[in-house]
Design a protein around this nucleic acid. Structure first.
Lengths: 241, 241
DNA sequence: GGTCTAGTCAAACACTGTTCGATGGTTGGT
DNA sequence: ACCAACCATCGAACAGTGTTTGACTAGACC
């Protein structure tokens, strides 16, 4: 037998197993968790299969055994994050406040993970967490006495409305950073304000007049206006007829 | 001089200029128009610089001289399409209907170009057409007597609301086709309905109960509910105080 | 021991947006 | 007529992407 101390000749090109093998096998859950961590830290454009692989100390190809595709992974990520939204148990007397509370919770989650809304586009959330949220929201609407049809339409509209708001709110980002710092954001807002103010007033009387309002418009206030209008309108519609 | 009739010997490997040169030079406008045509025909995922180049009978690198980057191109595409939305001249007596009309027009454009909302994400539309639409919408709101602050907040919310609705409506597409045919869409809806109906009723009483409503929920009706609620709510808020 | 299978992964494929440098046509100046 | 400058085009290359293939290995079962 050959002495194991003697290294094999270099031209034999034995596979290098130094970095291989030792692996408590990666699990689907670990992949999803690592993906969310990477997304939170570095934003949507930083998530690639290779990058995620090395984050887990694994090869990119290994991931496919567990999640099938990047699209499949994002489905899992989406449902995982939907699990973070809180929906209260229905109380018929307070259904309007409860609806607003779920909307606020949904917005909070979308702000905590600014890539979320972008990921959700084109996906119909049907994972276990999504089902839970949907069921809970419908329960609140029905507790409010809405008709079956209006409950469903209202539920769908609520999601669209909150998503439409947050997709805008979290839209200008992801040049790498998950969310640009407030000062940078303020600078962008100021530039926009200055540009608007510099337009020819005879052609854009309203914009130039309202340039200051654009700069100071508060997203929190705006969101509250939105859900006020929406929930009120829904209640009014339910009460009519 | 060499007789131009005699072809050069093949080993000389002169550059092949057969497909080169003859080009009434491509213009920025022509590029944008071709991009929109390609997007309308084959959807967002079909738009690549190489593909767009050959669509114009040009090389991909040539496009960069005119539009700078793909992102820059999409900015131009966005503003061009925003130019398709119609906003009426303000009439104080009819400002609520007029607001709804612009919302409907915006939706129509987004349905005619299903990739539009996706393109608009992360972009602040500031092209000439966007300015025109913004100015016109603000004019209507101010004609309605809204305060400066509420006018701006209302304008921003209107856009978010309509976009949120249409991003959902046009979301499930672009596997290549710009919009899947209605039958396919109905099949997806039916599958979702069946799946919802098959859930355990004790855990999801409301979803199973309302499964039918999900399948039959009409987007047109839903959109009308949405703008009804929104415009009404905005008017009520303007009247209060 | 042997066989089987679940899991890992390097390498390759076909794409993507973008940059570089070479090339040519056109224009204006002399 | 010549020559330089400029505008515009584009092949080739670069770095990156998602995904597939096929070889491989470690552990479990018989």
């Amino acid at each position: 037998m050959a002495d194991p101390e003697i290294p094999p000749p270099p031209w034999q090109r034995l596979p290098d197993r130094s970095s291989r093998k030792r692996r408590e096998p990666i699990s689907r859950d670990a992949i999803v968790a690592a993906a969310i961590g990477l997304l939170d830290r570095e934003g949507l454009s930083a998530l690639s299969m290779r990058r995620l692989g090395e984050e887990l100390g694994a090869g990119a190809a290994s991931l496919y055994w567990h999640v099938g595709s990047k699209d499949g992974l994002l489905d899992l990520v989406l449902d995982e994050l939907i699990g973070e939204v809180e929906v209260p148990d229905p109380d018929p007397a307070r259904w309007q406040q409860q609806l607003k509370e779920t909307a606020r919770s949904q917005r909070r989650v979308s702000l905590r993970h600014p890539y979320l809304v972008r990921v959700s586009i084109g996906r119909i959330p049907m994972g276990p967490n999504a089902l839970r949220v949907t069921e809970g929201t419908l329960a609140i609407l029905r507790a409010g006495g809405l008709s079956p049809r209006l409950a469903v339409q209202g539920y769908l509209l609520l999601i669209d409305t909150v998503n439409g708001f947050t997709v805008d709110e979290t839209g200008v980002e992801d040049g790498g950073a998950p969310q640009l710092p407030p000062e940078e954001l303020q600078k962008v807002a100021d530039m926009a304000r200055d540009y608007i103010a510099s337009l020819p007033p005879e052609q854009f009387p309203n914009m130039t007049d309202l340039a200051g309002e654009f700069a100071f418009s508060d997203p929190d206030e705006r969101f509250e206006i939105l859900i006020d209008i929406f929930v009120d309108g829904l209640a009014r519609r339910a009460a009519a007829r």
